[in-house]
Design a protein around this nucleic acid. Structure first.
Lengths: 225, 225, 225, 225
DNA sequence: CATGAATGAGCCTTCATTCAT
DNA sequence: TATGAATGAAGGCTCATTCAT
């Protein structure tokens, strides 16, 4: 719901035929859910087709192959997140507050879009061989990186931030924290009995996401000790 | 070879028969590499057998099924990391230095045992359904958590650390950073062109692992600003 | 050929594709022969497929599994015999002649449909676990039982038949005689050197089938001694 | 119990080794139960070995192969029934009573030795190919046939029995009735809801066994009508 | 556009049997 | 005599994909 791109939505009851765009989107929605749930190898074309209001033949008509469908799912997912990234508004905020806002926004996004995080994990299991070949994904420019660069530049110039941690490093730190909560949720719970996505802990972990990145980037030499 | 548990080793050339322990380990070694490389569903029993000095039949003789083999691989992997955790020596270190040492040790371990990290990612794709059923894994107590608890206690009592971040939270932060480097290496490189496991950056990221967790746990109210 | 349901027919030479009904029946015919010849466990899906004009894959497409195929064979066989049962015409016959006609008809049917008898024997080896689950077979009403009930009622009312042998008992006696000739033919021949299905003895055994059941049901108290 | 030859007995607790005869019998007992329960193809050497106090290797040592074991089971079973046949005492009985006693004895035997009946059914599924090759079974002379010949001779001479039904025919009729109760018990129950081996009906069916064969052999021309 | 039918390659698993000790 | 380890052949089943209508 909320995210028409990734959520597992049911096919509209009335089988509206003769609407190619709708058919395509229907397949994509179902396939996203299936690939995110079962992995690339584990996903079944038959299962996807069964949950669609069209047939298996249409999947091949629109996407050519299982890999083609998977790639379309990945491109769709990455396009979605890039769009959401742009929604973040940090105008008028100082570097520290902006950084914190970015981290919290990322945390919110990832925890509310588990399928995206799962797809990324799955793609990594396959050594990113699919998205590496995708022109679409390469053309997507990460707003997050651009934003981070500006924030870091301001912060360093103000003597607040370390100068030896660049935007990609910061992005890595922010992402790793947020992704872990979704990607490693199950083994973490199995081993330690704690559900990282428990609603009760959401605020705590959200705030910690901001605190941690701000603390990590703060130039300790400035504060003295 | 460094880690006989996880590395992909070739079968010993001379097919020494009648050595069940060797046969079992041989299968386990090859299977670990295969599952880590291809995922649970993607792994092929035939391929595993082919790279072993025994036959496919023996896999079923010793492990019963594909799932049984996979579970044995996971149990072996987790047992291995728990053993390595115990190697960390932080005797005589203060809480800050101990925390930093633990983070760097974790970073070193994960980046030098990519198969372990990949297996954990794969198990999460399957919602940890296998290890949840494993008695062996449930019985493994994490030394890391115990160690962290002691460190945090000392740090909090000394007024150095935040009191609202417990050992599991700290473990989550340390792990997420280290795991991300291995688990998300491929998509990160595909998207941003940077290899997180590049030797040239190893020291930088290793140090950052320590800095980040120390900074995150440090009670900022103490230092003022 | 006489019985398209049970006989082992060869696949039609010209592989006419796109005729699902034909494909299904082709598989069923071959499978009936295979299961009757080799038993449930002994039957080989590969062998069945090889004697079909389709492939092994199609067997699973239509019947789902070996057990599904076997069940379809059993349902088809029982449906066939029920149909043949209805062909018996005993209109206008008195109870004694009707009973004799029914016994002879059963004897003829079973000896001319050995595969049906063999399938029943095989199903009993498996404790009828398959047909017990079959809704189709449960819905089949036995005309033979209904007919027998009417015959017995008339015979008893006329003081000709014993009143303590009901239709199921009579059916059991008639069936046991006829089935034995087919089901135990081989051990009987091996032990005593006599082929119960020898053409030369057919008339003798056919008449005996009628004589025996009539004699068994006749109320001896009536005839005195 | 009752019949040490066919019943499924547990291995004696104390693993008395170095007793070849005991080992052989142990295997035979377990194998009889397994083959009777699962059929020739369905029986598993591993399962038999597991329920024995010896190992799989011993089965091959004593019986050579699965078929050898099966044959030994069959020979043992047939030897057992021949022995029991001889227990019947009809001295001093007239032909009618002797015939009735024989039929009832057969009925009692078969219904109390279901494994024997099942093995016969299984052997017939395989077209008696195994016992045909057995010298042991060919050498067994059926007392029942000899006894029947004498009975029939007396009865025919006394003008009581039909002369055109010989001992093998009579044996066939007696056996078919008794065997059906055990061999077709499951399908009969599945189709008609009646358990032919129900204790409540035992006496009825036992008496009917005698009545039926006596009636069938009685020369009706003598009694007039 | 749409669909049921069909396919070939390959996957996991099992079984009777034998070997080395 | 006894036993755990090992094996080759085959068996049931599944999957992505394509064809004919």
């Amino acid at each position: 719901m909320g995210d028409p791109t990734l959520a597992t939505t049911e096919a509209t009851p009335d089988a509206r035929r003769r609407d190619p765009e709708r058919t395509r989107e229907d397949i994509l929605t179902v396939a996203t859910a299936e690939f995110a749930a079962e992995g690339y190898t584990g996903a079944r074309i038959d299962d996807i087709a069964a949950r669609t209001r069209t047939t298996k033949r249409m999947i091949y008509y629109y996407f050519g192959s299982k890999e083609g469908l998977y790639l379309a799912v990945m491109e769709n997912a990455y396009t979605g997140i890039r769009t959401l990234e742009r929604e973040l508004d940090i105008e008028g905020l100082g570097p520290v507050d902006a950084l914190r806002a970015l981290a919290e926004h990322t945390y919110d996004h990832h925890t509310s879009h588990p399928n995206f995080v799962r797809l990324v994990a799955i793609e990594n299991v396959h050594r990113a061989e699919h998205i590496t070949r995708s022109a679409v994904i390469h053309e997507l420019n990460s707003t997050a990186i651009d934003t981070l660069e500006r924030i870091l530049k301001l912060g360093v110039e103000a003597g607040l931030f370390r100068a030896d941690v660049d935007a990609l490093d910061a992005h890595m730190m922010i992402s790793s924290y947020a992704i872990f909560h979704v990607a490693n949720r199950y083994t973490f719970r199995a081993l330690f009995g704690r559900d990282l996505l428990d609603d009760e802990r959401h605020e705590h972990y959200r705030a910690l996401a901001g605190d941690a990145i701000v603390a990590a980037l703060t130039d300790v030499r400035q504060t003295g000790t």
